[in-house]
């Protein structure tokens, strides 16, 4: 295993490195989200069919992508915690759930708002929408399980197993529009193909996606630092830190 992997295992090292990275990502998120939103709302062209209501794509697609990536991070961190008994991995997995849940809510809400004027319905029980709702319920399940168990190690182990079982939902969300007949249109962004829209439409979307990831990194690091300090409050370095901070 490389050295950085073992360094990651040290809560103190994690606290220090996130402290350095935090302002970087915070600025990137502010700039990308502000710039992306302005470009998307004011300068990107409207769609020939949907007109301006198409612009909700600039919130909907990034939040849907991020909600799924966040779940994958939660499951992978959970697996690392199970296999290597790494405390920091358990903390990362725990911090993912509430962030991911709020972003999944955002994706579902913007989807419903978009669906009403274009499809004619707020909600349809098609495979894409239903599997996305299941993702939200998985986040809720992970949060509930984590807070139901008093012992931190047991809580981390059981939520890791739950999130690993739920991991099967991610490919279902992704491929639902290809495997079955759905009302939802096929993917906007794929890694392998050029998007099916002109560059002045997908460029702001790409900026928004990266901005959402930076925002996620900020939210994640804030929660993680909080969790590290609260769990390590009895260790020497945290006491020292608190004394220097509040003198």
């Amino acid at each position: 295993m490389p050295r950085w992997f073992y360094q990651l295992a040290s809560p103190r090292w994690c606290y220090d490195i996130t402290g350095k990275l935090l302002p970087l990502f915070a600025w990137a998120a502010v700039l990308l989200l502000l710039g992306g939103t302005a470009w998307a709302l004011a300068f990107a062209p409207a769609d020939y069919q949907q007109g301006n209501s198409f612009r909700i794509i600039y919130i909907h697609v990034p939040s849907a992508i991020l909600a799924q990536s966040c779940y994958m991070l939660m499951a992978i961190a959970g697996a690392v915690g199970l296999i290597w008994k790494m405390k920091v991995a358990d903390m990362v997995a725990k911090c993912c759930a509430p962030i991911g849940a709020s972003i999944a809510v955002l994706a579902l809400a913007t989807g419903a708002i978009w669906g009403k004027p274009t499809w004619g319905a707020w909600w349809v029980w098609d495979a894409r929408l239903t599997s996305m709702l299941i993702l939200l319920f998985l986040y809720f399940g992970v949060m509930a399980l984590n807070s139901a168990i008093e012992n931190q190690t047991t809580a981390a182990q059981s939520t890791a197993v739950l999130s690993l079982v739920g991991l099967v939902n991610i490919p279902i969300i992704k491929y639902s529009v290809e495997w079955w007949n759905t009302l939802h249109q096929p993917a906007t962004f794929t890694l392998t193909e050029k998007p099916a829209m002109p560059v002045e439409m997908w460029m702001p979307l790409l900026i928004m996606v990266i901005g959402f990831y930076c925002f996620f990194a900020v939210a994640m690091m804030l929660r993680l630092r909080n969790e590290i300090v609260s769990r390590e409050r009895r260790s020497g370095w945290v006491r020292e830190l608190i004394q220097t901070q509040f003198r």
Binding site: P45, A46, D47, Y48, W119, G120, P186, M197, P198, E200
Partner: peptide, 27 residues
């Protein structure tokens, strides 16, 4: 009793759509 519209992932500005329509190249 209910009709819902389906749209595809080919978003495009109105001018592009017009040009494609003329050429018979709309999706």
């Amino acid at each position: 009793v209910e009709v819902l519209a389906k749209h595809d992932e080919n978003y495009m500005p109105p001018e592009v759509a017009e040009a494609l329509e003329k050429a018979g190249k709309m999706p």
